[in-house]
Write a protein that binds this DNA or RNA. Structure first.
Lengths: 97, 97
DNA sequence: ATATTATATGAATATCTGTTCATATATTTA
DNA sequence: TAAATATATGAACAGATATTCATATAATAT
């Protein structure tokens, strides 16, 4: 066994799996700047409203984004600073390749 | 658009996709301690030699592990400190959930 | 009340991906 | 040389997953 037990490694894999999809990463990318409603996100990332909504559901279930409702609109934002840190570390790695 | 352009976000997603599989994360987990040959990795992570070899190929292609040959054996180790950092950040996030 | 706008979601589909199995390659040992 | 050991890899298969399409829900505006 390594440093961690199996249960924990599986949790970590599950976490990174969420970051491992380009639509979701694009959503996170635009949410780094400010909170946005679904249709603005869809516009910015160039995906359908439905596709974005499905992916937001996954991000929400993983507690990586939070949301607030305002009338018709639902505004999403990043859940905490960890999400940004993980994104930035990935970014850093890519820049050094 | 967010902070990054599309090409870069896709690269980041591709990177995290590699971390997003439990067999690969388990391999990284055991390599955090020391370099290991394929059959030792297979033993430690509880996967078949073939499955591990396939996953090492992916890790190698992504430049997340490096290797050296010694006779029959191939010893694998983590490519650089970024891999460990990303793993640890994921670990940190999990611990705070 | 009706139409419009914003969002969510189930089903179907197509694609991707990880494992297994069989086998090839290469090194070491008897 | 033959057998054993370590690793790599292609093909096939099964399971996972992302998108689309259709539609439901809910809030707002006319």
């Amino acid at each position: 066994m390594g440093l961690l037990n199996d249960d924990k490694t599986i949790d970590i894999a599950e976490l990174f799996k969420i970051f491992g999809d380009s639509t979701r990463i694009k959503i996170i990318n635009v949410l780094l700047e400010k909170e946005l409603c679904v249709c603005d996100i869809a516009e910015l990332v160039g995906a359908s409203q439905s596709a974005v909504s499905h992916q937001l559901r996954i991000l929400k279930a993983s507690k990586l984004v939070k949301f607030r409702k305002d009338g018709c609109c639902t505004y999403y934002s990043l859940a905490d600073s960890h999400v940004k840190k993980i994104f930035e570390l990935g970014c850093e790695h890519i820049n050094e390749m």
